[in-house]
Nucleic acid binder design. Structure first.
Length: 770
DNA sequence: GGAGGCCTCGGAAGG
DNA sequence: CGAGGCCTCC
């Protein structure tokens, strides 16, 4: 055994070895792009096991199912089946397991439902309607975001409603009743015995915080904690980790502050930047040698990230050959850009006799993929798009799962509303509205009302009542079979007797056929699950009976995002994806498209310098995906939503040290873009804005800095009212009113087109015409 | 209760 | 332009 552990370490360089061997006390592994981060994590777990650590005492957390799966496989290769008993998974999956075990301590049943974003949004939309609020002002997405942010900061509905800062903020954004929505949302989740994604974290924290026994139990259990992609943790994840590790401090976090690109969903880069203040005796290991990319790529990436102020110092270097310089393509339009990229792929592939899988095209937003696809199709280059609608988010799949979910948890309101009239059984909106009102009046779930309809005064026709009663009887008959039938038998029964299968079978359109096939695929997956051997789960969980039942299948289903489609499709294809989804991947040849100011960096993102730094990290991630060669491209004109807009090359191109660039394709056509954006921000800072308007000069309103109070004064002045503006979509209009302050300036504009409509718009979207 | 016309709006994405 | 939500009319 000893001999074997030596062998394990032989695969690692010195820095990696040191990080693996330091198994006691807090450890931070700062791992640069391509430096073998995952390698260190897997070898560290293998090393722990070789040292005799019980696999049950190791907790390894990742952000994606894919990362967890891959790590499990890798460790199994190193140490064998022992690896299966390590607590390994995403934050959400591990904590939902714990919450099911401890559910009664936080007042939930063990079979609680997990609401995905779609379920949450539907619930919020219905609450907004019930409160008769303006859904233009209270947009579901935004409301959910606010609630999610609150939960991430451990602010529950009660506290939300009394926190002065939050109240002021909601008043200012004209949404004073957000707190009320939050309260009702929480109550309704409880009534449905459901948790949303944020609750899985929030409630785990609550469990550990309010329950010393549970805290003690899990501190003793998780003697060794490992966290991947630590730069992407949010506040509540950070606090949970801190609690779990408080006893023995055997926590090892691995990450790269330069690759923190999820700020917009609550990731807090400070968690990694300030780790030292939490654990003063933390051992820091830097992995700075890059094994992935050529010298030119590494250097160019370094020259980009050096522009960021907020970062931990490290210097990525490589022993790899210098390689080619980064090539830049200037295209006339988005179509032209696609053509240039497709030609280049074709040419490179032919010259070097490479498979398509060696190429990836990355972009900032999904909408960019269309013109690229067209160009690839024209040259018959096979491609594969990553992202898009995942299997478990498809309508027909969610419909069938809702049947399963309601069978498993009768209180689940969103599941009930989704299927009570699908397939159609004559229980329409009117009836459901009455029931919803009745349910909230009596403070019970809709199921409760339907199940004990004799207790409530329901004002609906006898015919409808009968239909409802048939439905309830059916669901109940499913529920009683949960423990007596295996998952596949019951699933098949539900799919058939609910009428769902027949409904899809009758639809002979292409779409209908594919939906039917998807249902078959889901049923097949359940069949496989049923035939699986019961895995060696954790000793904490009660022994499950021999039968693989549907409720067990449903446990984590909401946490699954893709159906391993990647593995199925192993054809040789070019990969197309957003930069976000490219993190963790690598390709010999990488094309980064759409390098235009306002597209990448994205105009809507940049409201302050920190956002710009995140965009820059995103660019860093994109460049460091490449092993051999990076190509950058931008279009001078781009169609967006049917409009052709003039584009400027991205400032990011300019930020790369010219030494690493090959400008031959650009020649003198390339102009530095410095003056433009700089001038704009100067304008804003110096309040010259007024002057420019006076002179009647056409001016694009600055988008790189958030507005300051100084300009508000300018904008508030009568001067701004009455001036002519242009909006990329609505055309030319006149400002009739300006209101708000700070970053919330709103201009009411009367447009000449779009039916003379009054629209409320952020000022930054307008061009001042005069 | 359901189908089709009208209106709206456009970000990256994990669980 | 195109997808998705809402409303109106049947």
């Amino acid at each position: 055994m000893q001999k074997h552990s030596v062998n394990i370490l032989e695969d690692l360089n010195e820095a990696q070895q040191n990080a693996v061997k330091c198994i006691s006390g807090p450890v931070l592994v700062l791992a640069g792009a391509g430096s073998g981060k995952t390698r260190v994590l897997t070898y560290r777990i293998a090393y722990l096991l070789k040292q005799g650590v019980d696999p049950f005492n190791i907790l390894s957390l990742t952000f994606t199912n894919k990362a967890a799966r891959e790590m499990k496989e890798r460790i199994e290769k190193l140490v064998g089946t022992e690896a299966r008993s390590v607590w390994m998974g995403t934050f959400h999956s591990v904590f939902s397991r714990i919450l099911r075990i401890e559910s009664e301590k936080i007042g939930y049943p063990a079979n609680f439902s997990i609401y995905d974003t779609e379920d949450s949004k539907k619930l919020i939309r219905s609450i907004i309607k019930e409160l008769e609020l303006n859904d233009k002002i209270y947009q579901t997405g935004h409301v959910l975001q606010r609630i999610s942010a609150a939960k991430t900061s451990l602010i529950d509905a009660a506290r939300y409603n009394i926190e002065p800062d939050i109240q002021t903020q909601d008043q200012a954004s004209m949404k004073p009743r957000l707190g009320e929505i939050y309260s009702i949302y929480s109550q309704r989740l409880r009534k449905s015995a459901a948790m949303d994604f944020d609750d899985l974290l929030f409630n785990t924290y609550l469990l550990l915080h309010t329950n010393p026994e549970a805290l003690y139990k899990y501190q003793k259990l998780f003697k060794y904690i490992l966290v991947d992609e630590y730069q992407d943790t949010n506040h509540v994840q950070y606090l949970i980790l801190k609690k779990l590790a408080a006893d023995n401090e055997n926590i090892c976090v691995v990450g790269d502050d330069a690759q923190s690109i999820y700020g917009f969903r609550g990731a807090n880069i400070e968690n990694i930047l300030s780790l030292k203040s939490d654990y003063p005796d933390v051992n820091i290991f830097k992995l700075e040698q890059n094994y992935r990319s050529t010298g030119n790529i590494v250097n160019a990436a370094n020259s980009i990230i050096a522009k960021n102020k907020k970062q931990l110092y490290k210097e990525i270097w490589t022993e790899n050959a210098e390689g080619n310089k980064i090539k830049i393509f200037k295209a006339a339009s988005d179509g032209d850009e696609g053509r240039i990229i497709a030609d280049s792929i074709f040419e490179t592939k032919m010259n070097h006799q490479l498979p398509h899988s060696h190429f990836a095209i990355l972009y900032r937003t999904n909408a960019q993929s269309r013109s690229l696809e067209e160009a690839l199709r024209r040259l018959n280059i096979p491609y594969r798009i990553y992202g898009g609608l995942s299997f478990y988010k498809r309508k027909e799949i969610k419909d069938l799962l809702a049947y399963f979910q309601l069978t498993n948890n009768n209180q689940d309101e969103q599941a009930l509303l989704r299927i009570i009239n699908y397939p159609q059984r004559g229980i329409g909106d009117t009836t459901l509205n009455k029931l919803t009102v009745l349910a909230s009046e009596n403070n019970v779930s809709i199921w409760e009302i339907l199940n004990h309809s004799e207790l409530y005064k329901i004002d609906i026709h006898q015919g409808t009542k009968n239909k409802i009663s048939d439905f309830i009887t059916m669901i109940k008959s499913f529920s009683v079979q949960l423990q007596t039938k295996d998952a596949y038998e019951l699933a098949k029964l539900i799919a058939n007797s609910s009428g769902l299968l027949k409904d899809l079978y009758d639809d002979k359109s292409n779409e209908g056929v594919s939906r039917f096939e998807n249902i078959e695929e889901l049923l097949n997956a359940i069949k496989e699950f049923t035939e699986e051997e019961i895995e060696n789960e954790n000793e904490l969980e009660p022994k499950e009976n021999e039968l693989r039942t549907l409720d067990v299948f449903m446990k984590d289903i909401a946490l699954l995002t893709d159906a391993d489609e990647d593995d199925k499709d192993n054809m040789d294809k070019v990969s197309l994806m957003t930069i976000h989804s490219a993190k963790g991947l690598e390709f010999p040849y990488v094309y980064i498209s759409g390098l235009e100011e306002n597209l990448f960096p994205s105009m809507q993102t940049i409201t302050n310098r920190e956002d710009l730094e995140e965009e820059r990290r995103l660019f860093y991630v994109a460049v460091t995906r490449a092993q051999n060669q990076v190509f950058l491209s931008y279009a001078e004109n781009r169609y967006r939503w049917g409009n052709l807009t003039f584009c400027e090359p991205s400032r990011f191109i300019e930020e790369i040290d010219p030494e690493y660039l090959d400008m031959s394709r650009i020649k003198k056509a390339y102009k530095p873009i410095n003056n433009h954006s700089e001038e704009d921000s100067q304008l804003f800072q110096n309040s010259v804005f007024n002057e420019k308007i006076k002179k009647g000069k056409l001016k694009k309103v600055n988008t790189t800095e958030k507005s300051t109070d100084t300009e508000t004064d300018n904008l508030n002045s009568e001067l701004a009212v009455g001036i002519e503006v242009e909006h990329e979509r609505f055309g030319i209009g006149k400002i009739t009113q300006i209101e708000g302050a700070g970053s919330n300036i709103k201009a009411t504009v009367l447009f000449k087109t779009a039916g003379q409509k009054q629209l409320l718009l952020k000022f930054a979207r307008l061009k001042i015409l005069k």
